[in-house]
Amino acid sequence: PKTFTVRIVTMDAEMEFNCEMKWKGKDLFDLVCRTLGLRETWFFGLQYTIKDTVAWLKTDKKVLDHDVSKEEPVTFHFLAKFYPENAEEELVQEITQHLFFLQVKKQILDEKIYCPPEASVLLASYAVQAKYGDYDPSVHKRGFLAQEELLPKRVRHPMFPVWGGIATEGPEGITEGRGPAGRGRKPRASAAADGGRSLSNPQNKKGTELLLGVDALGLHIYDPENRLTPKISFPWNEIRNISYSDKEFTIKPLDKKIDVFKFNSSKLRVNKLILQLCIGNHDLFMRRRKADSLEVQQMKAQARE
């Protein structure tokens, strides 16, 4: 059969595949997951960029029917698309934790997700411990972290005594069996940072700029000045319906006494993305409230061993 070349970029690897012309998104996605040895596939997706907006490969649509550049190799980024409610409980396998760790770390360093300075320093110290093990003064000499990128630019301000912070954080807070050491340590980054919210910037009717966040628990509206505490939150079980028409996006609360919330996005494409993220996040929200599948039960048992 006729094929085309696809390049897949993960957080720490690049690979190429020959993809059949007729393959759907799911065929390619499954092949990538098998190659990585990843079983907790439901958090992930294949991302591409179109006109400065990210989009995700649809499982039931042919790869080549997507609005991707047809120049070979066709490139996709393999990334976490949905974040867990509770990273420690839900990210079972080491490979899943590893991919989340790398992705969230990068997003914090690139300031794509906001992480307060104190939390950044704490997370940096965990990252160092994950990579180098427990602090040992005979091995870890002064300056051994100089080449590492560990903190967002904003935090690396000369006036901010970060290195002192890490140095004391190292031997004090991070010894085996204390604090966050051990399993489940890495993915905490997502919980401590922005909770895995995908932020986009819709505008309301008056033209005031707002930020919309979609996460594991619902939809949140933020003032751009404060990305940590939402102005308004719509938990999944308090929403009746979500819809868009062109650039207008509508959230209908279950309680009829609460106003319908409307805003305008910059592009129709953004509304499509938001609705997709809503459906996927809500689907996972519902699944978490049902018994674990046999596959997940088995993985958890293995991880405990």
Binding site: I239, S243, D246, L268
Partner: peptide, 20 residues
């Protein structure tokens, strides 16, 4: 023409489908 300009997701309806 092909591009759909509307989208809709019934959050409560999805819940009901699941519980059935």
């Amino acid at each position: 023409w092909h591009q759909r300009r509307r989208g809709n997701y019934g959050v409560q309806a999805a819940w009901r489908r699941l519980r059935r």
